Simulated assay, not measured.
Amino acid sequence: MKLIRIAAAALGALGALSGAAQAQEYVFKLHHFLSAKAPAHARMLEPWARRVEANSGGKVKIEIYPAMSLGGKPPELIQQVRDGVVDLVWTVNGYTPGAFPRTEAFELPGVFLNDPAAANVAMRRMFDDELSKDYDGVEVMFLHVHAGQGIHMVDKLVRKPEDFAGLKLRIPTRTGAWAIEALGAAPVAMPVPELPQALSKKVVDGALIPWEIIAPLRLQQQTRYQIEGHDQTRIGTTTFQVSMNKARWDSLPDDVKKAFRDASDEDWLREVGRIWRASDDAGIALAVSAGNEHVVLTPEETDALLAALEPVQRRWIEEVSARGIDGAALIARARALMAQNASR
């Protein structure tokens, strides 16, 4: 009798597995550039994927492939999803400079200051009328920013614009490169996984990047100073997208589309802002515990830094206007919506 019960239980388990496999009618591959240990993977992408699956009633399975494990380099992610090599990607817009010009308004120093949740919601509300033209070939699940570009320095403390003269700093976006140039330093573009080696070999003197990335890249071992403005003011931010191949999206039934949409609503975008803020707080705590110095600029020093960066906005407005884009209007709209949705 015991053997019969074991056999029955085994058959039942096999039947359940078979039923689950049959229920998962739609399997998606999501490809991204960071490790599975990164907060973005564990705290954002994994929970979002599970939300979609739950919303679908078991019809959807999202398989996440971190650290470019399906091949290629980070700047190739957007083309991979457009070509249908993968179904979904999470990528940095700035890895393909100039490809998402309207969305860049949110990256500019002096536009984004310190509120990722507000920026996420503002991008959502601007998407249909103002930003969607940036995203041919993909269906955007959601856009978001990180907590903003903090200043990480190997061994030189910088507090004033003139302190940056002659330095080399890593940045992932062209708007960030313009900020570095406005401060008299030289920008060095590279995907974030390459940063630890660049810092250790002094290829760069520092980097503009959030505190969140300190733990997965062990930046506390490569740097001495983490610097930000008063009230967590940052030198702009970086925009990201989670997007699906457009043809794959168009082939889906309405109930599956709804599962993705419901998982990517404004409540989720606010949660993403909180996730990145919390990850940022954890990153700076790690750096301080390792003996690094967390430098917060005075209000006067912060104002001086932002004043030195004002030409970046003018440069961007002129650049996008040549492409028929009203950059000043985008900045005004972004600021207004972030103010309306402030979470701080």
Rank of each mutant, 00 (worst) to 15 (best):
E162S: 12
A13I: 15
E181N: 12
F28R: 01
F260N: 08
L219S: 02
E130H: 12
E181C: 04
D231V: 02
M1L: 08
G84L: 10
S35F: 12
L113H: 12
R124Q: 14
L167P: 03
R224H: 14
A185E: 13
P191F: 08
A263K: 09
V203R: 06
I64V: 10
I180G: 05
A304L: 10
I4P: 00
E293G: 00
D255H: 12
L169D: 01
L183T: 07
A117P: 03
G137Q: 09
A54H: 10
A332Q: 11
D134S: 04
W48E: 02
G15W: 14
A328I: 06
E76K: 02
P101T: 13
A99F: 08
R218H: 13
R274L: 09
V89M: 07
L252A: 09
L143R: 05
E212C: 01
M68L: 11
G176P: 06
T298C: 03
P101W: 11
G327R: 09
R218Y: 02
F142I: 01
G273C: 14
L45G: 07
S132I: 12
D254F: 07
A16E: 01
N114P: 03
V242Q: 02
Y225L: 06
W211E: 08
V145Y: 03
M44T: 00
E271N: 13
A49P: 07
S200A: 15
A207K: 00
S279Y: 00
W211Y: 15
D87H: 05
E46P: 00
Y95V: 10
P191V: 13
R234V: 09
E25P: 03
F164E: 00
N114R: 14
M126C: 06
I64Q: 07
R335L: 12
V92W: 08
M153S: 15
L157D: 04
G206S: 11
G291Q: 02
V312Y: 09
E53K: 01
A328Y: 05
I284E: 00
M153C: 12
F28E: 04
P74I: 13
K168I: 10
D281R: 13
P172T: 01
A182M: 06
F28N: 06
L219A: 07
R248D: 01
F33I: 09
D205R: 03
D83Q: 15
L217G: 03
S343Q: 15
E162Y: 04
G206M: 10
Y225V: 07
A329L: 05
T302K: 03
D267K: 14
L77F: 11
G273M: 03
R82Q: 15
V288I: 04
L305T: 00
I64Y: 05
V52P: 02
K257I: 01
R315L: 02
T173I: 04
G148I: 12
S132K: 15
N292C: 07
R5N: 00
E319N: 12
G291M: 09
Y95E: 05
V256A: 02
V188K: 02
V86E: 01
Q197E: 12
V52H: 02
P116H: 08
G184W: 11
D326V: 14
A7E: 13
A20G: 00
G12M: 14
E46G: 01
K246P: 02
V242S: 10
A263D: 09
S343Y: 08
A342V: 05
A259Q: 06
L306S: 00
A207F: 08
P75S: 07
T91F: 14
T237H: 03
A282C: 03
T238A: 11
